[in-house]
Simulated scan of single mutants.
Amino acid sequence: MKYLLALKRLFTPQKYPLYRTTPLRYVFLHLIILATLLAAPAASHFYQSMTSLSQLIEEKSDAIPAFTIQNGHLELPDHQKTVIHLNQGSVIFTEQESILSDNAFTFSRNQIHIPGLDPISYQNISTITDRSSLIDTLKTFTSSVYFYFMLVLLALILIQLFIILIKLISISLVAHLAALLFKKKSRFMNWLKITSFLLTIPVLLQYIGLLVPNTLSYPLSWCIIILLTCLTVYHLPGNKKAR
């Protein structure tokens, strides 16, 4: 398969300029695969959270405290924190504002915290006002959990794809200008194809950084893409008109 041959070319820097001959369908396929890879950790966290909510409703709904939402703030009986332990993580009800847990679905004072996703303000969920409304909402939600999961997964992939495209265009433009500066034969559209595959290793590093959070994965990914881009410029044929 030509796509697999294009991936093998990553191990031969002198052949990087040949990515300009790669069909566009393989370029688009590769970008979607990279976006899906980066979206996978957040999607996995979301799915685990939905599984926990399903178990909460089916097995431990009686443990949900009699809370109320007033003016966008969570209020608990006697201001007592409640932790409900489930098979995958836990569900926490607390009036605190700062949340440090990475494996808990948390109802804090002002927001709902879902691992891997941005916090959701109570003001954006008008259907949840107290314990009974929460149970009703979760029953409706968990009955179509796979549908909502597919929607969230699609949204996450599109977000990552947009970020990758912005990075792709920026790097390709800089690389094209650098190639012209060094009097190399260069076309911007060719660089878009080349950079699409050069992003593979940096994206893998970012993916590892999402699985095992560290401060080196992101800057290291940029160092690698700069190195690979420089290798490509070096191996580009010279511009005959400039001689």
Rank of each mutant, 00 (worst) to 15 (best):
Q123A: 11
H85S: 13
L153I: 02
F11S: 12
L151C: 08
L161H: 12
I120C: 07
W222S: 00
N190A: 04
T129L: 13
L138T: 09
T21I: 08
L34F: 03
K60S: 12
L228H: 03
K81P: 05
Y146W: 11
R187P: 01
R131N: 05
T215P: 00
L53K: 02
T215S: 09
Q206S: 03
I92F: 01
P23I: 07
R131Q: 13
Y122C: 09
F107S: 04
S186W: 01
L56F: 06
T129N: 12
C223E: 05
H73W: 03
I171S: 08
T137A: 15
K184E: 04
S98E: 15
L38I: 06
P213A: 08
I92K: 10
R131C: 06
L161N: 09
L180I: 05
E95H: 04
W222L: 06
L56K: 04
M150N: 12
P202N: 09
I201Q: 00
L173A: 12
S217P: 03
S217G: 05
G238Q: 07
P77H: 12
P213R: 08
L161V: 04
I69Y: 06
Y47E: 03
C230Y: 15
N124Y: 10
S108N: 05
L138A: 06
Q48N: 11
A66M: 06
Y26H: 14
F28G: 07
I225G: 07
A39D: 04
L173N: 01
I128C: 05
F28R: 01
L210Y: 12
V233Y: 10
P119R: 09
L177A: 10
V233H: 05
L4V: 05
I194K: 07
T106N: 02
F107T: 04
N190G: 13
E75R: 11
L76A: 08
C230K: 12
Q96N: 14
T68G: 08
P115E: 02
N214L: 00
L156W: 05
L31Q: 12
N103G: 06
I33Q: 07
L4H: 03
L158V: 13
L231M: 14
V203N: 02
G72K: 07
I64F: 10
F149K: 00
D118P: 00
K60W: 04
D102S: 14
Y3H: 11
G209M: 03
T137N: 10
I99N: 11
I84K: 08
S196R: 00
N214A: 05
F107D: 04
Q14F: 00
Q111Y: 14
C223A: 15
F188P: 07
N71L: 03
M1A: 11
L211V: 05
I69E: 07
P237I: 08
T12A: 08
H176D: 14
Y146I: 01
T106K: 02
Q55A: 09
F105C: 06
M189N: 13
H73G: 00
P17C: 03
L199A: 04
K241W: 02
H30N: 11
I164V: 07
I226M: 08
V203I: 14
M1N: 11
I114D: 12
P77G: 13
Q123L: 14
L180R: 15
L117Y: 08
M189S: 15
I164P: 01
L86I: 04
T68D: 12
S196D: 03
